[in-house]
Amino acid sequence: MAPDALVVGAGPAGLMAADRLLAAGCSVLLAEAKPSPARKLLMAGKSGLNVTKDETLDAFISNYYEASDWLRPMLEAFGPAHVQDWMRAQGQKVFTGSSGRVFPKSMKASPLLRHWLADLRARGLDLRTRWRWRGGGHFDTPDGPMTVTPEATVLAMGGASWARLGSDGAWAGILREVGVEPAPFRPANMGFRVDWSEPMARYFGEPLKGVALIAGDRSLRAEAVISARGLEGGGIYALSRSLRDGAGLFVDLFPDLSAEALTDRIARRPARESAANRLRKLGLAGGRLALVQEFLRPLPADPRDAAQALKRLPVPLSGPRPMDEAISTAGGIRRADLTDELMLRALPGTFAAGEMLDWEAPTGGYLLTACLATGRWAGDGAVRFIASRSG
Rank of each mutant, 00 (worst) to 15 (best):
P3I: 12
D4G: 07
D19S: 15
L22W: 09
C26T: 11
L30I: 09
A31S: 09
A31K: 02
K34M: 13
P35L: 04
G45L: 05
T52E: 13
T56E: 08
D58T: 12
A59Y: 08
N63V: 14
A67P: 04
L75Y: 11
Q84N: 06
M87C: 11
Q90T: 11
Q90Y: 14
G100T: 12
R101S: 12
V102Q: 11
V102K: 04
F103G: 01
K105V: 15
S106H: 09
S106L: 05
A109K: 00
L117Y: 01
A118F: 06
R121D: 15
D126G: 06
D126N: 12
D143Q: 15
D143T: 14
M146R: 15
T149H: 11
V154L: 10
G159Q: 03
A160S: 08
S161Y: 11
W162A: 13
A163R: 12
L165T: 06
G166R: 03
G173S: 09
G173K: 14
V178S: 10
A183I: 07
P184K: 09
P184Q: 13
F185M: 05
F192W: 03
F192K: 01
P207C: 05
I214T: 06
L220P: 00
A222R: 00
E223C: 08
I226V: 15
S227W: 03
R229G: 11
G230K: 00
L231Q: 12
E232D: 10
G235R: 01
S242K: 07
G248A: 12
L253W: 00
P255H: 01
A259K: 02
A261E: 11
A267R: 05
A271H: 07
E273M: 10
E273I: 08
N277T: 09
R288C: 00
R288H: 01
R297Q: 02
A301W: 03
A301H: 05
A307G: 00
R312N: 04
L317A: 05
S318Y: 15
G319A: 06
M323H: 10
M323Y: 12
D324F: 13
D324I: 08
A326Y: 14
G331N: 08
L338W: 14
T339W: 12
E341K: 05
F351Q: 07
A353R: 01
G354I: 06
M356R: 01
T363L: 11
T363K: 02
G364A: 14
L368H: 05
L368W: 07
A370C: 13
L372N: 06
A378K: 03
D380K: 10
G381A: 10
A382P: 01
I386N: 09
I386L: 05
A387H: 12
S388M: 08
